[in-house]
């Protein structure tokens, strides 16, 4: 599991954690049954507060991406391709909604926005 936390980002740290882990789960980099590190261990290693990690883990669970087995730990849930797609699209749309209203505030049409997006979209 890869995590890079930015303490200067506008985004709360628990959200950064949530987003980075979600992406890795949805892309299949973290496989079904993968065991996430214990909360207190992750907090100590990442040098963030225990509650921050707890919050991120809770958000992942609420989203159905992981499940907790009491006394054993948190594991990546078994997701069907449809579920992955649905969760991914919901998350992306939420982000896009904010971006879209920003474009609109400059008077961009959707076509113009797409043209500009193509210019900055990273190619592998």
């Amino acid at each position: 599991m890869n995590i890079a936390i930015s303490s200067t980002s506008e985004k709360p740290i628990y959200q950064q954690l949530f987003e980075q882990i979600s992406a890795q789960i949805l892309k299949g980099e973290l496989e079904t049954g993968y065991c996430l590190p214990p909360i207190r261990q992750a907090a100590q290693e990442l040098r963030i507060s225990v509650i921050t990690v707890k919050k991120a883990w809770e958000d992942l669970e609420r989203r159905g991406l992981i499940h907790t087995i009491t006394g054993k730990g948190c594991f990546v849930a078994d997701l069907s391709p449809d579920q992955r797609l649905q969760i991914r699209n919901e998350m992306i749309l939420k982000q896009m909604a904010g971006d879209a209203s920003y474009y609109k505030s400059f008077g961009l049409t959707i076509e113009e926005a797409i043209e500009l997006l193509k210019k900055v979209y990273p190619n592998e």
Binding site: S7, Y14, R47, I48, S49, V50, I51, T52
Partner: peptide, 22 residues
């Protein structure tokens, strides 16, 4: 900002708020 789980804020001898940090 990073290490505390809870914050208690006191002002003028009174607690303004005591809560989980976020």
């Amino acid at each position: 900002e990073k290490c505390a789980d809870f914050i208690t804020f006191i002002e003028n001898g009174q607690i303004v708020r005591s809560a989980e940090k976020e």
